[in-house]
């Protein structure tokens, strides 16, 4: 089954007098349980493609399908609902809510998802344990390292067990040890829960974890390499 399908996606930005083609007739299929890295130099279109797949950015033309549902023509609120229930986002900057503890940051998203109050605390502790933050649930972001904060962000993204996780440069602010730890966590989730991962990166170490490496340049897909299975 196809987890993500992009058909002839185009997106152009205007920068002063100059038009920049961020996506130039992009076609992409990602199978359920895929572990895909989008690799491109800066400005190559990987973040724009990721945003289009996540419904954060509407393409100028083309179609985006997630798990068999077309999303490029959805309303803002429908897209928000889709992201809340089916897609997990991990960003380069962790952007946790600074006044909430690790557990509360995860719980906040669950509350919005409508998870009953009695289940939230249990699930939050479980997911924090799963991402290796057992015992740190009461700490606020300022009391944690970058790697730990990124793990909370991952826990927040994964707590609803989304079928699709979109990660934009998730290791950019992490040291190599934390980056490896995070990627191993992604691989484990991919293997155990068949979660589909699409990761935008230009970090060679991250690409090494991918089952499939898609290379982009100037908004076009210029390479699609099948690597190893996990």
């Amino acid at each position: 089954m196809t987890a993500v399908k992009c058909i002839d996606l185009c997106k152009t930005y205007r920068q002063g007098e100059q038009e920049i083609k961020a996506l130039d007739h992009v076609d992409l299929d990602v199978e359920r349980g895929g572990f895909v890295c989008l690799s491109a130099p800066s400005g190559g279109g990987k973040t724009t493609l990721l945003n289009a797949i996540g419904g954060l950015d509407i393409p100028d033309s083309g179609q985006v399908w997630i798990a068999g549902t077309r999303i490029d023509n959805m309303s803002k609120s429908e897209l928000a609902r889709l992201r809340l229930t089916q897609i997990g986002f991990v960003f380069q900057a962790y952007n946790l809510i600074p006044v909430l503890t690790a557990k509360e940051n995860v719980e906040f998203v669950m509350q919005v998802q409508g998870v009953p109050a009695r289940d939230r605390a249990k699930l939050a502790l479980e997911i924090l344990d799963e991402v290796g933050l057992a015992g740190l649930d009461g700490r606020r972001p300022a009391e944690m390292s970058g790697g730990q904060q990124q793990r909370v962000a991952v826990a927040r993204a994964l707590v609803s067990r989304p079928a699709l996780v979109l990660a934009d440069e998730p290791t950019a602010n992490l040291d190599s040890h934390s980056a490896d730890g995070l990627m191993e966590l992604f691989v484990e989730l991919n293997r155990n829960h068949q979660t589909t991962f699409v990761i935008a990166t230009h970090d060679q170490r991250v690409m090494a974890y991918a089952k499939r490496l898609i290379k982009m340049l100037d908004g076009r897909i210029v390479g699609d390499i099948r690597q190893h299975e996990h």
């Binding site: 996540g54 954060l56 803002k76 609120s77 928000a80 609902r81 889709l82 992201r83 809340l84 229930t85 897609i87 986002f89 960003f91 900057a93 952007n95 809510i97 998203v109 919005v112 927040r156 993204a157």
Partner: peptide
């Protein structure tokens, strides 16, 4: 603004 952008990206509606 940035924080709101992130939580909106996570699926939290502007209304909320």
């Amino acid at each position: 603004t940035r924080e709101f952008g992130i939580v909106m990206a996570l699926g939290i509606s502007p209304g909320r």
